[in-house]
Amino acid sequence: MSSSLVWYIREFARAEWIKKFLFAKTAPLVTPTHFRGFPEPTGKTCTHALFCMMACPAPGAIEVVHAGDGWMPKIHKGHCIRCGLCVEVCPNGVLKSGRIRETMGREGTSLLFSFRIAIDKDLCTGCGNCCTACPVNKQADAQMGAGGHSSNDDVIMRVQEGDIVVIHEDKCTGCKTCEVSCPNGAIRIARILEGYQQPVQEGLQ
């Protein structure tokens, strides 16, 4: 009788079972490697291209700040929605998050920026402040005066006969200096971000 009781306890109250019952936790509460967490620095040098700030859809989530000698993007948790666009758009690969960079390399995808200059003709007075403020204009035509007149065809925009004319929209870098300098709020710069995939050569896939 006693031996059967011992057998019974040993069979049904095994030490490892009791230990498992008391201490086992469900498995691995670890973050999988493919999870896009908050972007982290890869250690490459930031060149202050500011593409990350331009691509970021969440207001105030990323900021490029001084770090020692150079620049470094700073992620503000609580604002960042972990979409990974900053990782994808950076030309120097400063940030990493999940396996976004590996996927981009494998599939040959990238993001292209372009900017559209929208001018409200009703509000625009043709003062030329935007043309003189524009840093790209300044490089193309250093002689441009206060009225925004220019005989140079390389400028982004210039004033012709009292009206603003946009010549090279594609040269815009999206700095929005013109928006700030406009007294009427007539000029707006829209950012257009489009995905691009390099065509895969035949025979490779």
Binding site: A58, P59, H76, K77, G78, H79, C80, I81
Partner: peptide
Amino acid sequence: GNCPISGCLFDR
């Protein structure tokens, strides 16, 4: 989440 910290998308 982000909303109680910053309002995120709703704080416009």
